[in-house]
Design a protein around this nucleic acid. Structure first.
Length: 594
RNA sequence: GCGGGUGUAGUUCAGUUGGUUAGAACGCUUCCCUGUCACGGAAGAGGUCGCGGGUUCGAGUCCCGUCACUCGCGCCA
C-alpha cells in the first residue's frame, strides 16, 4: 500500500464501499460526540467524513493538522447521508492514524470565511489559499492560463520567453531597476511589457508570437493594479487590424465562454461591433465603456445656445468654448426627490457645481433648470434623444474633456443607483481609432497619447499634412464591462515614418536613435508589417471570478503598499551586498530617523 | 505627494452624553456527550482599546500629532 494514500479525499463513492483505503489530508472540521468522533478530512480534491471511536490522537488533534489514516469505506446509515457532499453517501471508519504534522492554533479560520482582514490573510497566505474561495480562484487562474496557451497554439502561435533583465525604457511608467555588479553604476530594468522584443521577433521572421508575459511597473497600487502582473502578449506579421481582431476575438470569446459559469451563474458572452474612440468618449464618456449600462450621452450644446434658453450659467460657458452633454435616463421621472438630491450631492463631491436636470413627466419639463429652457428647445431635446413621457435628462456643462469624463461618471453612478446595469453577461468590444497625439494640458505640448510605435493612419502623408491632434493611430483597446482588457496596435515598421512621428511629439532623431536604436536598426534590415495586442490575464480572471480586487485572483501577492508581509519584501540588504553593487544609500530623513 | 474610511480579545465586530470591573460571536483550554456534518452542553483563559501627547476629578469615547491597513486622486505610453 502507498505510504500516504490510495485515494483522494473527494473521490470515494458508493462503489467504493467495502474497500480498505488510506487517505491523507488536513483536519477540516471535528465533531466530537464523546463516544464517537467525526472528522472531515480535506485535500485539494474535496472532503471525506471519517468516523473514529475512542481514538485519543484524533480527539486531541487541532484543525489544520495533517494526518494519514487507514480505514474501511462503509455506507452511511439511512438518514445520516449528506447530499451536500459528493462523498456524502459514504464514510471511512478509522483503523489507524499517523499524525504527519501538528498545527498550532491558526490565526483565522480555514473551514469557514470569518471575514479576516487582508493584511493577516497575506501574512498567512498559505492558510488563506487552503480556503475554498482562494483555492478555487487560483485554480480558475491556472485553468484560464492553460486555456490561453491551448487556444493560442491552436491558432498557430508559438510561445516565447523574452528577457526579464533588460534595458530601462525612456517613457511610460517607472521601471523597477536592478543594479549591475559587473558594470558599476549601470542598471537593468524589469520589462514594463516585452513590447520591443515581440516586435523584434517579428523582424526575426517568427510570424506569430505569444507569451504569458510578466510585466513590472513601479507605480502606486490600486485594487486592480499591481507592481507585477501578467499579460497574454501577442504579435503577428503581415496583418491588418481586422486580422488581429479575428483571431483574438475567437480566442478571448472562447475563454470567456469556457469559464463563464465559474461563479455558479451562467453568463452570456457578447462580442459587440467595433466602436470608435470618439464615439465611445461622446456616447459613454469613457474609452472603456461598460456596455451593460443602457444609458447614453448626447451632445446638446447647440440646443442650449438656442434663443429661448435663458440658462446663462451654461450659455456663458458655451461662449468660452464649453460643451453641454446630456444623460438620458428613461422612466426616472417617478423617482423620489431623494434620488435627484443624491445624484446632485454626488456631483458636488466630484467637484461639479451640481447636476442640473429636466424631468419630462409630461411634455412640459420640470426640474431646477426647466424654466430656463423654452418650449421649443425642450421639444428639440426630446426629439434629439427620442425621449418619452416619464424620462429624465441630466446635464453637464464643462470643457469638452471634462464634460465627457463627468458625464461618463454620472452615467455610471445613475445606473448604479437605479440598478439598471444588466447582469449575467460579459459585453466585449474593440475600441478603435485612438488619437495618435494629445495635448498635454499642463505644458501645452503635443505628445503621444498611447503607444508611440503604432502606425499613424494615413502614414507619412498624414504626419506631414494634418494637424497632429486630428491624426488617428492604428491603435485599439478591447474592453469588457467597463474594464480595459487589452491594448494593441498595428506597428509602425518604417524608420522614416517613425522619425517624423517622434519629431511631431518633440523628440529629435538623436533621442530616437539613443532610446530605440536597437529596434530602429532592425527596421532597416527588412521589417514585415506587423501588429498585435496584450490582454491583462488578471483582469480576465477578475471578471470571470466576479472579484473587484486583483489580489483575490493571485496565489502570492503584495499588499496595497507593494510589500509582502509573508516574505518580508522589500527588505534591507547587507553592507556587503551594497558594496558589491557599488551602491550607497541616500535615504530620506524620515526613514533614517526610524 | 494628496483625500476619504478603518484601527477595541487569535478573528470579525459592539461599546450610548466622557463616569463603576471594556462586551458579543467564532476560535482556544478543560470537562460532559455514540450519528454529527456550522453537532450540542458546562466552565475557563485571553485586552498596551494602534502609538505619543493634551484637555478633564475621570478618556476606548473629546482635541493635536503620528503609524498601519484599505479605497480613491495624482501617477500608470
Amino acid at each position: 500500500m502507498h505510504l500516504y494514500r490510495t485515494h483522494k479525499c473527494g473521490e470515494l463513492r458508493k462503489s467504493d464501499i467495502g474497500k480498505s483505503v488510506k487517505l491523507s489530508g488536513w483536519v477540516h472540521r471535528k465533531r466530537d460526540h464523546g463516544g464517537v468522533l467525526f472528522i472531515d478530512l480535506r485535500d485539494t480534491s474535496g472532503l471525506t467524513q471519517l468516523v473514529a471511536q475512542g481514538n485519543a490522537d484524533l480527539e486531541k488533534i487541532r484543525p489544520e493538522s495533517v494526518i494519514t489514516i487507514e480505514g474501511d469505506v462503509v455506507a452511511r446509515a439511512d438518514g445520516t447521508t449528506n447530499a451536500k457532499m459528493p462523498t456524502g453517501d459514504v464514510e471511512v471508519v478509522v483503523k489507524s492514524v499517523t499524525v504527519q504534522s501538528h498545527a498550532d492554533v491558526i490565526p483565522f479560520q480555514v473551514a469557514e470565511d470569518d471575514g479576516a482582514g487582508e493584511d493577516v490573510r497575506l501574512k498567512y497566505r498559505y492558510l488563506d489559499l487552503r480556503r475554498e474561495g482562494m483555492h478555487s480562484r487560483v485554480r480558475l487562474r491556472n485553468n484560464v492560463i492553460a486555456a490561453m496557451r491551448r487556444r493560442m497554439w491552436d491558432e498557430g502561435f508559438q510561445e516565447f520567453n523574452t528577457p526579464i533583465l533588460t534595458a530601462s525604457s525612456p517613457e511610460g511608467a517607472r521601471d523597477y531597476l536592478v543594479p549591475s555588479r559587473l558594470h558599476p553604476g549601470k542598471f537593468y530594468a524589469l520589462p514594463q511589457a516585452p513590447q520591443q522584443f515581440k516586435q523584434l521577433l517579428m523582424m526575426s521572421g517568427f510570424d506569430r508570437y505569444f507569451q504569458i508575459a510578466p510585466c513590472f511597473r513601479d507605480e502606486d497600487g490600486r485594487a486592480d493594479r499591481l507592481a507585477e502582473f501578467y499579460q497574454l502578449d501577442v504579435e503577428m506579421s503581415f496583418v491588418q487590424q481586422e486580422d488581429v481582431f479575428d483571431v483574438m476575438t475567437k480566442v478571448v470569446k472562447g475563454i470567456f465562454e469556457e469559464f463563464a459559469d465559474f461563479t455558479g451563474t451562467k453568463h452570456r458572452v457578447e462580442f459587440l461591433p467595433n466602436m470608435s474612440y470618439a464615439y465611445a468618449m461622446l456616447t459613454y464618456g469613457s474609452d472603456k465603456p461598460d456596455l451593460r449600462n443602457p444609458l447614453k450621452i448626447t451632445d446638446v450644446t447647440e440646443i442650449f445656445n438656442g434663443h429661448d434658453v435663458t440658462f446663462n450659467a451654461f450659455k456663458n460657458y458655451i461662449a468660452k468654448g464649453g460643451v453641454v452633454r446630456a444623460i438620458h435616463v428613461p422612466q426616472a421621472a417617478k423617482q423620489p426627490r431623494s434620488f435627484f438630491d443624491k445624484v446632485n450631492s454626488w456631483a458636488q463631491s466630484e467637484g461639479a457645481p451640481g447636476l442640473g436636470y429636466i424631468a419630462f413627466e409630461t411634455e412640459e419639463g420640470k426640474g431646477p433648470i426647466a424654466k430656463f429652457v423654452g418650449a421649443e428647445s425642450q421639444k428639440k431635446l426630446r426629439d434629439t434623444m427620442k425621449m418619452q413621457d416619464g424620462d429624465v435628462v441630466f446635464f453637464v456643462c464643462e470643457s469638452e474633456a471634462k464634460a465627457s469624463a463627468m458625464a461618463g461618471k454620472a452615467r455610471t453612478r445613475i445606473a448604479q443607483d437605479l440598478d439598471i446595469i444588466e447582469k449575467g453577461v460579459y459585453k466585449l468590444c474593440w475600441i478603435v481609432d485612438f488619437p495618435m497625439y494629445e495635448m498635454d494640458e499642463k505644458t501645452g505640448k503635443v505628445d503621444f497619447s498611447h503607444n508611440p510605435f503604432s502606425m499613424p493612419q494615413g502614414g507619412l502623408d498624414a504626419l506631414m499634412n494634418k494637424d497632429p491632434l486630428t491624426i488617428l493611430a492604428t491603435q485599439y483597446d478591447c474592453v469588457c464591462n467597463g474594464y480595459e482588457l487589452a491594448s494593441g496596435g498595428i506597428r509602425n515598421h518604417k524608420p522614416e515614418i517613425m522619425e517624423k512621428a517622434f519629431a511631431l511629439a518633440g523628440y529629435s532623431k538623436d533621442v530616437l536613435e539613443k532610446k530605440f536604436g536597437g529596434m530602429l536598426n532592425a527596421f532597416r534590415y527588412g521589417a514585415p508589417p506587423h501588429g498585435g495586442c496584450a490582454f491583462g490575464v488578471d483582469r480576465i480572471v477578475m471578471l470571470l471570478a466576479d472579484e473587484p480586487n486583483l489580489r483575490e485572483v493571485y496565489a502570492f501577492v503584495m499588499n496595497g503598499q507593494y510589500e509582502d508581509p509573508m516574505m518580508n519584501a522589500p527588505s534591507d540588504i547587507t553592507e556587503a551586498q551594497l558594496k558589491d553593487l557599488h551602491l550607497k544609500l541616500n535615504l530620506p530623513k524620515k526613514v533614517e530617523a526610524a
